[in-house]
């Protein structure tokens, strides 16, 4: 069995008016299915990219994967364990959650502006009780900062003292501090400039090699995942319409929607 498996993942949103209004106006319930029976599986140490436009449900899947949202139906299985099993005790659930962390889209909103960088990175270590002792925790934070290409002295600074790309590095260091096996990357470079985007993508790839990390990479930009996705799933209006390796997808797209996406992506290649 694959390391991460999404089984019939579904999420509905109830957009209905209040019951009393519906009763008076005789209007039916309005249910929006943001994610509709999505299945995929990711092998350990590989990257699965979910590509879609706004409203495709890609962010909803990311949130369900890390447990920020509950699926309306279906489940996510990691390492043979059902993450949405209602029978799990809170501490068991927490232990599972530790193994699947997230890197967020916004380099600005994802770091608490009032916290020092060192405290931000140390928080998961403390919350999960991974390392005891302030000194040892401090050493670990320094190590993580250096791993993502920052200086250990940066621990004393505040997020606003860093550029967008550096903040994304901090965000990656925070995700790593939980010692996760899976990282959900939710458009981690879409707010960055190209030259910095390449730095962050290369860093993510190097870390994946070093720790055999499994990535679920959410993006609207097919080009961004061309160097790192082992498999790409194309989402349209909550449904997974096509799934292929990048080589296959780029050279022999099967669905019209995929073809349209590929054709409309602005390309820097001439001729």
């Amino acid at each position: 069995m694959s390391f991460v498996v999404a089984k019939g993942l579904t999420r509905n949103y109830d957009l209905s008016e209040p019951l009393i209004v519906r009763a008076l106006t005789m209007r039916p319930k309005r249910i929006l299915t943001a994610v509709d029976n999505v299945n995929f599986s990711i092998e350990k140490g590989t990257t699965y990219a979910l590509v879609g436009e706004s409203g495709s449900g890609k962010s909803t899947i990311a949130k369900m994967a890390v447990g920020l949202l509950k699926p309306s139906a279906g489940t996510l299985i990691m390492d043979g364990k059902n993450l949405n099993d209602p029978a799990l005790a809170r501490n068991e659930q927490l232990a599972l959650r530790r193994r699947i962390q997230m890197v967020f889209q916004s380099p600005y909103a994802s770091l608490n502006p009032r916290w020092r960088v060192g405290d931000i990175i140390a928080e998961p270590i403390k919350a999960f009780g991974l390392i005891d002792g302030t000194k040892a925790q401090f050493m670990r934070v320094s190590e993580l900062l250096e791993q993502v290409g920052l200086a250990s002295s940066d621990a004393n600074k505040y997020p606003h003292e860093f550029s967008g790309g550096q903040r994304q590095r901090i965000s990656i260091a925070r995700a790593l501090s939980s010692q996760p096996e899976v990282i959900v990357c939710d458009e981690p470079t879409s707010a960055l400039d190209v030259s910095v985007q390449a730095q962050v993508l290369n860093l993510l790839k190097a870390l994946q090699k070093e720790y055999a990390l499994t990535y679920l990479f959410i993006t609207h930009d097919l080009a961004v995942v061309s160097t790192m996705a082992n498999k790409i799933g194309v989402l349209n209006k909550g449904k997974l319409v096509e799934e292929q390796s990048p080589t296959g997808l780029f050279s022999r797209p099967q669905q019209d929607y995929t073809k349209m996406l590929l054709n409309s992506a602005p390309s820097i290649n001439f001729g």
Partner: peptide, 13 residues
């Protein structure tokens, strides 16, 4: 609604 709060929820606070 900001992501740093989501990050805090992820570590079980």
């Amino acid at each position: 609604e900001k992501e740093y709060v989501a990050a805090a929820r992820l570590i079980g606070l």
